[in-house]
């Protein structure tokens, strides 16, 4: 029953490998969040477009993405898309899938943030003849960001915790590496425990960071001098 006795020597031996895999996990999360924020904004703005057809289409696209499992999307992008001539590396696929999936969730956060801006702000912008693009860029988004921070942060942390799903398409992230180490050494306790602890630590640090960002963000929004 050697699996139930903690082996410190083994722990120190495998830690560097797991830490270097953590870089892949963090990179996928970072790029995935940037892409998700971008896609979320695109979805949210398109859902406010004056064309009804476009709004409805985007609504159903978002609904579709949110209502199908991430893993199915990952598989589809990785194994099916090459048949249509689009093949991407595991990392690129992962970033794309995470970005798209969480972009769909974030679009709801952004939409409600934008909806929360008082009508008077839009009216003042129009009375001053600002273009729609300037109204979003200078008036609406700078004020909408603060209320969006907590929910956006939660989704990014949720995304981070879903990165092990990318092991299904052979991305060498933390869990995948831990599994490989385990099967090579017939010891799973230490690698999987380390992975769990690292997820816990990163999540707590990220949650604290997000809270700090929110707390320090000016209440009125991004301030413009």
């Amino acid at each position: 029953m050697n699996g139930f006795e903690w082996d410190w020597a083994f722990t120190w031996e495998v830690l560097p490998m797991i830490l270097s895999a953590a870089k892949v996990t963090l990179l996928a999360t970072l790029l995935g969040s940037l892409f998700a924020i971008f896609m979320g904004l695109v979805f949210a703005l398109l859902r406010r477009h004056k064309s009804r057809t476009l709004r409805t289409t985007v609504y159903w696209v978002v609904e579709f993405i949110r209502s199908t499992p991430l893993l199915v999307q990952i598989f589809f992008l990785y194994y099916v898309m090459p048949e249509f001539g689009v093949s991407m590396s595991p990392l690129a696929t992962g970033v794309f899938a995470l970005g798209l999936h969480y972009g769909a969730y974030l679009s709801e956060v952004f939409r409600s943030g934008i909806d929360g801006i008082e009508k008077g702000q839009w009216e003042a912008a129009r009375a001053l003849n600002l273009s729609l693009a300037d109204t979003y860029k200078d008036i609406v988004l700078p004020q909408a960001i603060r209320p969006m921070i907590p929910a956006t942060g939660n989704y990014i942390i949720a995304m981070f915790k879903e990165t092990p799903q990318l092991s299904a398409i052979t991305l060498l992230e933390m869990l995948q590496i831990a599994k490989i180490i385990g099967s090579e050494n017939f010891r799973y306790l230490e690698p999987f425990t380390l992975v769990g602890i690292l997820y816990l630590v990163f999540s707590i640090v990220a949650a604290y960071g997000i809270h700090q960002v929110e707390r320090r963000f000016p209440k009125e929004g991004f301030s413009l001098k």
């Binding site: 008077g120 003042a124 600002l130 200078d138 301030s223 413009l224």
Partner: peptide
Amino acid sequence: NHLGMVFQHFNLFPHMTVKRNITEAPMRV
């Protein structure tokens, strides 16, 4: 461009300084 409006509830941009509230439209538009 012919018209300007002052609102009952001001509708100033709270994230901008007073100066920027005034210069925003001339600069952008």
